[in-house]
């Protein structure tokens, strides 16, 4: 797979190559990777990239994907306008 051309986080345009580089530099969890490169911080909140990054971490550390620490799942579930909240809807 062409890791320089493979997009892992579509919201923030992060490639597989960038993710692999961070893992090799010692960033150990999805949370750490998210904070230095914004993967998972876009409108979809990591729905696509979270598990892809988990797979890369699992491969690198030779652990089952289920053992990779998940980031906190935060509200809102989907993007909602501030005006909607302000009206108490």
């Amino acid at each position: 797979m062409q890791s320089k051309e493979t997009i892992v986080c579509r919201c923030e345009d992060i490639t597989l190559d960038e993710i692999k580089t961070l893992i090799e530099q010692g960033y150990r969890t999805i949370d750490e990777i998210k904070r230095v490169i914004r993967a998972g911080m876009g409108p979809c909140q990591g729905r696509t990239c979270r598990m892809l990054i988990a797979q890369e971490l699992a491969k690198y550390y030779k652990v089952p994907v289920g053992e990779v620490l998940m980031p906190t799942f935060r509200p809102t579930v989907k993007p909602v306008k501030l005006g909607t909240f302000a009206r108490g809807e």
Binding site: G42, Q45, R74, V80, K81, L82, G83
Partner: peptide, 21 residues
Amino acid sequence: VARQATTVLPLLKNLRVVRQW
């Protein structure tokens, strides 16, 4: 926060919230 923000900066009512913490 939505009430306070849209009172001080009304234009922001059109912005979508993606995450809170």
